[in-house]
Design a protein around this nucleic acid. Structure first.
Length: 153
DNA sequence: GCCAACGTTGGC
DNA sequence: GCCAACGTTGGC
């Protein structure tokens, strides 16, 4: 059982979009970063929980919790030239990019925004979200950090 | 809109 | 394999 934080720009796909999706489940496509891909491929397991984080908005922050409900499988959007995240170098015979399905669990009682999380940096040492220059769209969260952040809710 | 911090690309 | 140029991310 692992814990994660996954980022999404709310203009593109928000926590409400996930809640309103059929079966409250959606595939998490568009990951085009090897480190994030490797997390999906090697470490994510069905039943893992993830913070749903709104990025590139005002204010950015954690807005909900979702569950990983599938193993990793090929991200088909990489094969389609009409898709925003088309990657001609991803071979369908040997897919370069993977995705998982995530299911809405609940919204947090309130948004736990980035500024607040940073105020607790001393209790969140090593948390990838507040490391300098962090740009990962999927990152692991330790159980200690997970519980602590939820205690702020 | 700005820009720092990265990741990727491609010439050599 | 090095590294400059370029593109992207994402907070501010």
């Amino acid at each position: 059982m692992n814990y994660w934080l996954i980022k999404s720009e709310p203009d593109a796909f928000s926590i409400d979009d996930l809640e309103n999706a059929p079966d409250k489940t959606e595939h998490w496509d568009g990951i085009r970063n090897y480190q994030a891909r490797n997390f999906i491929r090697d470490s994510m397991e069905v039943g893992d929980l993830a913070f749903f984080y709104h990025s590139n908005c005002k204010p950015p922050g954690i807005v909900g919790i979702c569950e990983i409900v599938s193993g990793a499988y090929p991200d088909h959007t990489a094969f389609d030239p009409n898709e925003k995240y088309f990657d001609p170098k991803s071979d369908p015979e040997n897919p370069r990019w993977l995705m998982v399905d995530v299911k809405f669990c609940r919204k947090t009682k309130r948004m736990i925004d980035l500024a607040e999380i940073k105020e607790h940096a001393d209790r969140l040492e090593g948390f990838a979200l507040i490391r300098r220059g962090n740009r990962l769209s999927i990152m692991p969260v330790s159980k200690e950090h997970w519980d602590y952040i939820l205690s702020l809710e």
